[in-house]
Structure formats: C-alpha cells, structure tokens
C-alpha cells in the first residue's frame, strides 16, 4: 500500500489535525500498539450503546416534560441516578438523549463531507488544470470564512433544528474533506504505480475506483475520526448559543448553556455534559491519531 503522509489541515480544526499529524509522526511506537486502538474504540462503542440503547435499556424517563415539582433533585435520588434539572427532567436521560443528537449530527456531517468533499477533492486533484484551480479557490473562500460566523448565520437563517445544524456544519466538512482528498490524490499521482496503471491504459473510472479510492480511503477515514470530535464540539457551541438543537430537546451544548445559569448553585448540571463531551471527543481523537499512525505505515 502506498505510504501516505499525514493530511494537511483546515480551518475547522487545524489544532487537532496538525498536532496529531506531528505527534503521530515517525519514530514512536507508543500509540501504535493494539491497546491504543481498542481502548478508544471501546470507549466510542460504549458511548454509542449508552446513547442509543441506554434510555430504553434503563427505561429512563423522558428527557423533556418533567414534573416541575421534582426539580433539582440531587444525584442518586430514587428514579434519577444523576438527579434532575431545574425543570424536573432526569439528567441522565437528557445526557444520553442529548448525546444521541450530537452523535447523529457528527456522523451525518462527516458522511456528507466524505461523500461530497472527498469526491470533489479527489476529482479536483485527479483532473487538475483549470477545474482544480476553480474548485480550490472556491473552497479557499469557504475556509477563509470565519467558521463559527458561517454556521451562526446559516443556523439563524434556517432556524435552529437538527437538520439545519447538519446543513450548516456541512459547510466546513466539505471543504475540509476536499482538501484532504486532494492532497492525498496529488501525492498518489506521483507514485510509480499510478503512472504504470495509466500507461497500461487503465480507464479513468477504474483508475478512480480501483487505484485512487482505496489508497485515499484510510486518510479520509482517519480524518473523519478527528472530524467527529470537531463536529461534536462545534455542534455543542451552536447549541450553547441557542442556534443548534432547540430547547427543550436536550443536547450537550444546550445542557451546558442552561447549566451555566446556575453554575454556583448546581455545578453538576455543567459538569455532566462537559464530561460527556470531553470523553467522547477524546476517544475520537485518540482513535483518529492511532489509525493515522497505523495507516501511515510506520
């Protein structure tokens, strides 16, 4: 398999992307063992199961429409392991249901980015020439656009809802994936086996699907893992600002935001969703870094 370098960064999360690229660089084997992959993968699985099956399995109360008389119950009170919020809703239920929307949004945004951005970038890099220039300039504009501003505007324009949040966030994931795919293709084009395939008269279709796609897939998937973390954070930010998942439906972001209002009285309202955010993002980052280290073949 072609040895591929860590992907370049993009404006959404250059921090993570580039730092991981370097930290995952040659010469170290610490994260490369199996444990380094399986622990974060297991953690992600746990979060997924908890969020999607947890509410049913534990027969938790509904995350909304709680009884105001049961508000602000402490943790470990009967029927409410983590207690209730000021509206009398079960915190654990809100946490898990909120996580469900965060994860849905993250998956959807990354899949859209992968499908549209990945294809666009790969084609752009493969075809080259004027088409490449135009596509990349357009993406440059999107990237230079202050990320949060764009999402804010889109969310405002379309009103807060899950679908619109996905739509707004796709604005970044598309150029980001496009950049990664393009640079991967550009690097691949330099590889001897590509020239060989081309010389032997391989059709463009076959070229794209047989030679390019499998070789850039690892990079895109790795990037998608880091992207999951980034999207979860940004979705949280939007919900925090009241522009993502609309109240009273729960999301980690709006749970943090409402908790902030009574930070000194009931700090746990902020702590629980914060921990959930941190653990989930951390798991995706660790997994992404690991896959990168593995697939870069060092």
């Amino acid at each position: 398999m072609a040895v591929v370098e860590p992907a370049p960064s993009f404006s959404l999360g250059p921090e993570i992307d580039q730092a991981e690229a370097k930290a995952g660089g040659r010469g170290r084997g610490r994260w490369r063992n199996n444990l380094g992959t399986w622990i974060p993968a297991g953690l992600i699985l746990f979060v997924l199961v908890a969020c999607f099956l947890g509410p049913t399995l534990l027969s938790l109360p509904s995350p909304v429409g709680g009884n105001i008389l049961e508000s602000n119950q402490p943790a470990l009170s009967p029927g409410h392991i983590l207690g209730t919020d000021p509206n009398g809703n079960d915190i654990l239920s809100r946490l898990l249901n909120g996580g469900r929307s965060s994860l849905w949004i993250a998956v959807a945004v990354n899949l859209i980015g992968l499908a549209i951005g990945g294809t666009l970038g790969a084609l752009s890099g493969y075809v080259g020439g004027i088409a490449d220039t135009i596509i990349m300039r357009l993406l440059d504009v999107l990237i230079a656009f202050p990320s949060l501003v764009l999402t804010l505007a889109v969310a405002q324009a379309l009103g807060p809802s899950m679908t619109n949040t996905i739509f707004a966030l796709a604005f970044f994931s598309i150029p980001a994936f496009a950049r990664v795919a393009r640079s991967a293709v550009l690097r691949l084009r330099e590889m001897p086996f590509m020239a060989a395939a081309q010389l032997s008269g391989t059709t463009a279709r076959r070229m794209l699907f047989k030679h390019l796609a499998p070789n850039i897939a690892p990079q895109l998937i790795t990037f998608g893992m880091l992207g999951m973390g980034i999207v979860i954070i940004i979705e949280g930010a939007l919900s925090f600002l009241g522009l993502g998942i609309p109240d009273p439906a729960p999301s980690w972001g709006n749970m943090v935001a409402t908790g902030q209002l009574s930070l000194s009285a009931t700090p746990m309202l902020v702590v629980w969703p914060s921990v959930a955010l941190l653990v989930t993002v951390l798991a995706f980052n660790l997994l992404g870094e690991n896959l990168r280290a593995r697939w870069s073949g060092r």
């Binding site: 954070i233 972001g253 955010l277 941190l278 980052n285």
Partner: peptide, 17 residues
C-alpha cells in the same frame, strides 16, 4: 491530548467554576 479534546466553552465554565 486532554487539552486538545476539551471544547473551549466547557473549559471556560470549568475555569469559572
């Protein structure tokens, strides 16, 4: 690794707390 996984709004609130 921790610092890169924490959202800045979460960090802000924890710092305030």
């Amino acid at each position: 690794t921790l610092g890169l996984s924490v959202a800045n709004y979460v960090l802000a609130l924890l710092l305030v707390l």
